[in-house]
């Protein structure tokens, strides 16, 4: 099989020293904990494709379309391998060969239901959604980076991610409920939504049940712009004392998600004031890439404030 775009990256595939430092930052690996889902594995597979040791099966192709494009692996790569650029090129090669698959790209539900409002087309920063000849929305699976912005704006819930890997709204709601329900009565509790691009901390691949239970739960939601206000409100319904949303600083978000997240939080603050909840219980914080200390500081001061406010009265 000809892979002309991939072929030009041969040196980079050799240059990857396979240290595996990309694991701890990869949301897919965090979700499955299989090494074969980590960025290093994708480079290994690409190497195999190039030298004919790996067949471009559906299984291989699916893996190459499964990447949230967060680029955290690139930021820590010992060899400076431009991972996502290589992946985009091989996706094009595979599509040219008629082998594109869904991966984590966004889809329109097979049974239709699209209102043709084009909200998903407008929100996509990656030009992955266009209007086709029959007025249907067409998804370019190479350009789609799986940020999920289109999922959250679709009024008819027609847009889905083929594989959400633990970051869909229902996944997050389940995790949230499980944590909030586990906290003792009267004890502070808060949900911290972290954008994978900027602020989600490195992997903790070990369990320590004796550790003192934390008063907050960090949930990775990929782009902060994906967070629907209902999900944030749901945290309060389940007993949370507060919700902190972290996102990229202005100008740094690749999907304009930080702007949407900020608007969501501001709207929610207004609603909370109207229903008698202190608006300070929901807060947006900018966390630049690679500054875990900023997030830790923000969480600490947010929790101090929540303790001062006490349990919500409504």
């Amino acid at each position: 099989m000809e892979l002309p775009r991939l072929r030009k990256w041969e040196h980079q595939l050799n240059a990857c020293i396979r240290c595996g430092y990309c694991y701890e930052h990869c949301p897919l690996y965090k979700s499955t904990r299989w090494e074969s889902d980590a960025p290093r594995a994708k480079l290994v597979l690409l190497f195999g494709l190039l030298n004919g040791q790996v067949e471009p099966t559906q299984s291989v192709t699916r893996r190459l379309f499964e990447c949230f494009n967060c680029k955290r692996c690139e930021a820590v790569c010992s060899s400076g391998v431009p991972f996502t650029e290589i992946l985009m090129d091989v996706r094009q090669d595979l599509r040219d060969a008629g082998l594109d698959l869904d991966g984590v790209t966004s889809l329109n539900a097979a049974d239709g239901g699209c209102a043709k409002c084009l909200a998903c087309v407008r929100v996509c920063k990656h030009e992955a959604r266009t209007v086709g000849a029959d007025q249907c929305v067409v998804v370019d699976k190479v350009k789609c980076v799986g940020c999920g912005a289109c999922v959250e704006v679709c009024p008819r819930l027609t847009v889905q991610l083929a594989t959400a890997h633990g970051v869909s709204s229902s996944d997050l709601a389940r995790e949230m409920g499980s944590f909030l329900g586990s906290r003792p009565e009267g004890e502070p509790r808060a949900i911290i939504f972290c954008c994978n691009w900027s602020s989600y901390p490195g992997i903790l691949n070990s369990r320590y049940e004796e550790a003192e239970p934390k008063d907050h739960k960090i949930l990775v939601n990929m782009c902060a712009g994906r967070l629907p206000p209902q999900l944030l409100m749901h945290a309060f319904e389940r007993g949370s004392w507060g919700v902190l949303v972290s996102g990229c600083p202005e100008e740094e978000c690749e999907h304009d998600g930080n702007l949407r997240a900020r608007q969501t939080v501001q709207s929610l603050q207004v609603v909370m004031g109207q229903i008698g909840l202190d608006p300070r219980r929901v807060h947006f914080v900018e966390v630049p890439r690679g500054s875990p200390g900023t997030l830790e500081g923000a969480i600490e001061s947010f929790m101090v404030q929540l303790r001062e406010l006490g349990a919500p009265g409504v």
Partner: peptide, 13 residues
């Protein structure tokens, strides 16, 4: 036991 997984787990650093 998919060949793709096996290929990945066949190497290290």
């Amino acid at each position: 036991h998919d060949p793709a997984d096996l290929y990945v787990y066949g190497s290290d650093s």
